[in-house]
Design a protein around this nucleic acid. Structure first.
Lengths: 224, 224
DNA sequence: TCTTTGAGAATGAACGTTCATTCTCTTGAT
DNA sequence: ATCAAGAGAATGAACGTTCATTCTCAAAGA
């Protein structure tokens, strides 16, 4: 059972601090990019460390100076993607109206995000079932997304774009479920046209968030 | 690159043809059940053939008389599950009303199907990306489900339970996407309460299938 | 009834390979 | 001379798979 530390870069000591000593871009990023290509091509278990070394143009001994294990590579990729998504949510601009923002994000998720990332995501999820460290990262990722989504919904409610008495938790869960499902299908069906689903997605979302129906908070049953 | 044949049972020669020679239940089923437990516990790659042999109470040599490779085990499980789901769809009884049937099936899918099968499903899907034979089985599975769902919708429309001018393909895709998403979350979040989503799911489904909105078939744009 | 026979079921040690990881050595800049 | 950066052969464990062999037992022959 291999260890799961994320391993700091191999001493980025810049003591005298004169000129930048890195002619190429950050070595760690290069390695992660190479690993990503290999994982997408052959899967986490199908890709050997030698494959990844070749792809990165680097010897095994050297690669291990940057990442302590194969698992740390997947963990590194997951963490990097998490930062990227954080960026996307942080840049949401509600002044265009709630549904415009949501549709933009949906379009991005359904269509713009490259297939590479979608496939990689399934690899990460599969490994999350086995490696606690990866499970931790992906659970944290998930909690982040949920929080951002709920904040977005609350802000939309404040603006009056959507109903105020929603069961925000349930609605958020449903949105995430749909998003997950879309990615699962994208990963599995090479020619799946997710963006064709956008109209219907926006339609049911408007319904969920706006009309007076089952997804509202209700008084708890069983009370006197 | 291992072969992918599904391997017939090891010669069920019954030449004289008198009494049934099987004292125990079918050996192949026992092996699949053992493999399923191992795959759920450790994943496809985490479970070794020796693990599976132990779980099945059988030596490797003997196990290989029933299945020609590890891959054939996953393929066998996938095929077995496909048959089971076929059963479920075949027994749908529309006389109770379309939405009652749909809600029953959703409840079954969200809650009753055991977590074991859900986890296993993610393993199968992951491997489908690598092994063509497994990809074939799971694509066939998918096509079956899609066909059954569309038939169900058509029947519901004939009964007058749902709208007649739906874009059946798009709606079916959306239903499958949601179903996929629910399973993905069930696999990832150990305490995910899918059945709490049922009301909201039924609500948006009624909306999709009944009201006059974006998910209707429209005249193709651009025509004269 | 007892023995022989033979075929299928099952065994488990061994094989060859693969793979993640480590070790040792070289290079090149300061 | 020192030390980070890198190379690549080496290592050893683990794995899927195979195969020579043994076990079981029902039926045929005596």
């Amino acid at each position: 059972m291999p260890r799961a530390q994320t391993a700091a870069p191999p001493a980025t000591t810049r003591p005298t601090g004169s000129k930048p000593p890195r002619p190429k871009t950050d070595r760690r990023s290069e390695i992660l990019a190479a690993a990503q290509r290999c994982f997408v091509r052959s899967g986490f278990h199908g890709a050997s460390m030698h494959d990844i070394c070749n792809e990165a143009g680097m010897s095994p001994g050297n690669l291990y100076r940057y990442f302590p294990s194969k698992e740390a590579l997947i963990a590194g990729i997951a963490e990097r993607d998490r930062a990227e998504v954080a960026q996307e949510f942080a840049s949401a601009d509600l002044s265009r109206g709630f549904f415009a923002v949501l549709e933009g994000m949906a379009y991005h998720h359904f269509s713009e995000r490259p297939d590479e990332q979608v496939k990689l995501c399934t690899e990460i999820m599969s490994e999350a079932r086995r490696h606690p460290e990866i499970a931790r990262i992906s659970a944290a990722f998930d909690a982040d997304v949920r929080k951002w989504l709920i904040d977005l919904l609350r802000a939309g409610a404040d603006r009056g774009d959507i109903a105020r008495d929603l069961d925000f938790d349930a609605v958020t869960t449903m949105l995430m479920v749909i998003a997950d499902g879309v990615w699962w299908r994208r990963a599995l069906e090479p020619n799946f046209d997710a963006k064709a689903l956008l109209p219907i997605f926006m339609d049911i979302t408007r319904h969920m968030l706006g009309s007076r129906t089952a997804n509202r908070v209700r008084a708890k049953e069983g009370a006197g």
